[in-house]
Design a protein around this nucleic acid. Sequence first.
DNA 1: CGCCGCGCATGACAAATGTCAGCACCGGGC
DNA 2: GCCCGGTGCTGACATTTGTCATGCGCGGCG
Lengths: 204, 204
Amino acid sequence: MSAPVRLLLADDEHLIRGALAALLSLEVDLMVVAEAASGPEALAMARAHAPDVAVLDLQMPGADGVKVATSLRTELPGCRVLIVTGHGRPGHLKRALAAGVRGFVPKTVSAQRLAEIIRTVHAGNRYVDPELAADAISAGDSPLTAREAEVLELAADGAPVAEIAERAALSPGTVRNYLSSAVTKLGAENRHAAVRLARERGWV
Amino acid sequence: MSAPVRLLLADDEHLIRGALAALLSLEVDLMVVAEAASGPEALAMARAHAPDVAVLDLQMPGADGVKVATSLRTELPGCRVLIVTGHGRPGHLKRALAAGVRGFVPKTVSAQRLAEIIRTVHAGNRYVDPELAADAISAGDSPLTAREAEVLELAADGAPVAEIAERAALSPGTVRNYLSSAVTKLGAENRHAAVRLARERGWV
DNA sequence: CGCCGCGCATGACAAATGTCAGCACCGGGC
DNA sequence: GCCCGGTGCTGACATTTGTCATGCGCGGCG
C-alpha cells in the first residue's frame, strides 16, 4: 500500500472544482492537496505543494492549461499533467501533447472514469480520450505556415488589413497575400470563414 | 418538515453533472430525480418526472437552457427554472428572464451557495447573480432592430452579402444597408467586429 | 552548386463591401 | 391627419478585399 496520489485541481469554475474535489476525495487513494482558479494561481500552487498529478482545465483566465503545463514541465518534471476540457478542439490536443501533457480528456467522462485515468497517468502512462484522438487524426496537421497562422490570428477580431499589417509589422500587400493563401489552403470563402475553420480545428 | 425539493439536472458535461448531483444530494432537503445531457433530453426528463426545480446549463447540444425554459414554462408551469452558466453574457440573462427563468447564476458559485439558491428559487423567489446583473445593466438594451440583428446573425460565419441576402430573402442592397446601420450603431469597424461586439453583449 | 519553399514586397485588376442619398409603404402615436 | 420609425428597394460612389503575376533574398537539401 503506497501513499495516496497528491492532486492539484485547477478550474475557474468554483462549482465544478469544488464538486470535483469532493468526488475525487471519496477515492481512498486520491487526495486533493491544492486548488486554483486561474493559470498563474495553478502555477503558484504547484510550486508550493509539488503535487503528483495536476488536473488542469484547458480554458482558464491568465494562462490556459497548455501554457501552465509547459511551465510545469521544466519547473516540476515529476508532476504529471492531465488536461480536462469542455469543448475539445483537435489542435489543442496536439499542442498539449507537445507540451508534455500525459492525459487529455473531455468533461463528458464520469468521475469514476476520471479517477481511473488519474491513476493511469500517475503510473507513468498516457491517456487520450479516443474520440478526441480520432478528431485530431482526422483533422490532420495545420497546412498553414507560421506567418499565415499569425496573420490569420490577427484577423480574428475583424480588424482591417491596415491594422493587421501594422500589428504584424508587415506591408499591407503582404498581409493580403498571406490571408489569401491561408483562405485558399483552408478552402474557405473569405478570411472570416477561414478564421472560423482554423479555430474549429484548433490551428490558431 | 416538508418533502424534499425534487431536482432535474441538465448539463452536457457528465463530469460536472455527476459531481453536482452527488454534492446536491448531500443536502437533506434536495433530491436529484432526473439528469439530462442535452436540451431535448432535459425536456423529456422534465415531462416524465415533473421536478420542482430544473437546473439547466445555458449551453447544451440540441436546445440551449433558455429554449428549454421557454418550453417548460407552458408545459410545466409549476416547475421553477434555474440557469447555470460558465461564461455569462449579458444578453442571455435578459432572454432568460423573459423566458420566465427564476434564477441565473455563474458556475463560479460554490455548491453550498447553489443549494441555497435552489431553495430560494423553490420558495418562489428570484435570484440573479449580482455581477451578471450589473453586467446586464451596464450593457443596456440592444440598439438593433429585429432585421438588423437577423442580418448580423446571418453574417456571423463570414458569409458574403449575396448568401446572406438569399438566406434572409432580401435584396443584396438592403442587406448592406442593414449591416451598415448595425455597424454604425455598434460603433464597430466593420461587420465582423460588429458581430463580435453583439455576441459579447449577448445581442445576437 | 542549383533548386525549392518560405518570407516579404510591389503593382495591377476585379470583386466585395461600406457609405450615402433618395424613394416607397406601412403602422403607431400625437 | 400628420409625423416618425422600421422595413425594403435602387443607384452611385469610395474603399477594402481577394487574386494574380512578379521579383528578391535566404536557408535547407539533394
